[in-house]
Amino acid sequence: MIPLIPSLFLHIIFIAVVVNGNNDTIYAILKDHGLPMGLLPKGITRFDFDNTGRFEVHLDQACNAQFESVLHYDMNVSGTLSYGKIGELSGISAQELFLWFQVKGVWVDVPSSGVIHFDVGLVYKQYPLSMFETPKDCMVVADSAFADSIRDGNLLAEAIAKRQSANLRYEIDQESLGRYQM
Rank of each mutant, 00 (worst) to 15 (best):
G43F: 00
A157G: 09
K125A: 15
A166M: 04
I13M: 08
G79I: 01
T80K: 09
L71W: 08
R169K: 07
F101C: 13
I92S: 10
A65F: 06
V140E: 15
L35Y: 01
A159K: 14
D143I: 09
G105V: 06
N23G: 12
G84D: 03
N51P: 01
D109R: 12
D152F: 05
M182R: 15
F132Y: 11
F146E: 07
N51M: 03
N51K: 05
G21T: 04
K104F: 10
S90W: 05
I15E: 14
S176E: 14
S69I: 11
E68H: 13
K162W: 07
L168E: 11
A16Q: 13
S113Q: 11
V103T: 11
P41D: 03
L155H: 07
P3W: 03
M75V: 03
I29R: 03
L97E: 15
G53W: 00
P111V: 14
Q174D: 08
Y83G: 07
Q66D: 12
V77A: 03
G79L: 03
V123Q: 15
I92H: 04
D32Y: 01
K42P: 00
A157Y: 08
P6R: 05
S144V: 06
F55I: 03
F146P: 02
L30I: 02
K104W: 06
K31R: 09
S112Y: 11
E88G: 09
V141I: 14
G178S: 15
Y180D: 13
G79F: 02
A65W: 06
F101R: 12
L30G: 07
H58I: 03
G34N: 07
S93G: 05
E158F: 13
A161V: 07
F67S: 08
K104L: 15
K136V: 07
Q102N: 13
L40Q: 00
A166W: 02
L35C: 01
S90M: 10
E133H: 14
H72V: 03
D32N: 11
V77R: 01
E88L: 12
A28E: 06
N51Y: 04
D74V: 03
L89M: 12
P6V: 02
C138R: 01
I12E: 13
D48Y: 04
P36I: 00
P6G: 05
P36F: 00
D143R: 12
D119H: 11
S82D: 06
N51T: 05
V19Q: 11
Q181L: 13
V141F: 05
K104H: 12
L81Q: 02
I86F: 04
L99M: 14
V141S: 12
D152P: 00
